[in-house]
Simulated assay, not measured.
Amino acid sequence: MRHRIPRTWIVVVDGRHAKVWECRDTSGAIVPVPEMSLEAADQSSFSRSLKSDRPGRAFSSMGERRSAIEPKSDPHTFEKAVFARTIAEKLNEAFQKQAFRRLILIAPPAMLGHLRKMLPEAVTDTLVGEVAKELAHHDADEIFQRARPYLLNTATA
């Protein structure tokens, strides 16, 4: 049975890509929102490409010895947080333009954490569901099936 629902965006994210799908009913038809598709800028698959060639050096507290200093964070984690901020800003802009009323996030657990931190409260209030899975390269049918339980919870006849 087909139920009409408020304009819902399904945001599917991984560490490098973001796609937004729009759903207006529970029939299974979701359509891409091409202006909201994003790719992270210049992300390399190797951490060594994201940082300097050699770690920093420091003198030990006693004597003349020097030793390497390991970075406090992983460059990939930092790049993913920057990408999450970009996504959150785009979603906030779209929300201000009333492009959607409800939001479902589908992303790996670490990216969901980054997105939760970055989303403004007004956008977070529209969140009706989260799926902690990496589905960025799956088809529309698979994405709809994962989002379906959240769509049916608040559908109106």
Rank of each mutant, 00 (worst) to 15 (best):
V31D: 02
G15D: 08
P32N: 09
H17M: 05
V33E: 14
S27K: 14
L38Q: 12
W9D: 04
A40L: 03
E39H: 08
D42Y: 15
I10T: 11
H17S: 08
L38V: 00
S44Y: 06
L38C: 03
L38R: 03
V33C: 13
S37H: 15
E35A: 15
S27A: 11
D14L: 12
K19M: 15
A29G: 12
R7L: 06
A18W: 02
T26L: 11
V31A: 03
R16G: 08
R2I: 10
M36V: 07
M1E: 08
V20H: 11
S27L: 07
I30V: 11
Q43I: 05
E35W: 14
H17L: 05
Q43Y: 15
T26E: 01
R4S: 11
R2K: 04
D14W: 03
S45K: 13
S44V: 00
V33T: 10
V12T: 07
F46P: 07
V11S: 04
W21H: 12
S47F: 04
I30W: 06
V20G: 06
W21M: 10
T26Q: 00
A29H: 13
I5W: 02
V11L: 09
C23I: 09
E22H: 10
E39F: 00
H3A: 08
A29R: 15
E35I: 15
R24Q: 10
A18T: 09
E35P: 03
Q43M: 12
V11A: 04
R24V: 06
P34I: 02
E22K: 04
V12C: 04
S27E: 14
S27Q: 06
R2L: 09
L38W: 00
V11E: 02
L38P: 00
H3G: 07
V20F: 12
D42E: 13
R2N: 05
W9R: 07
P34D: 13
S37C: 15
P6R: 02
W21E: 05
D25R: 06
I30C: 13
M36F: 05
G28M: 12
H17T: 06
I5V: 06
A40K: 10
R16D: 11
S44K: 02
V31W: 01
S37A: 13
H3R: 14
A29I: 13
R24F: 08
W9Y: 08
P32S: 12
A40R: 04
I30P: 01
P32A: 03
E39D: 00
S27V: 05
A18E: 05
K19G: 10
V31G: 04
P34L: 03
C23L: 14
Q43E: 15
I10N: 05
A41V: 15
I10W: 14
R16Y: 10
D14M: 07
G28E: 08
R7S: 03
S47P: 08
E35G: 14
D14V: 06
V33S: 09
A18S: 07
A41P: 13
L38I: 07
H3M: 12
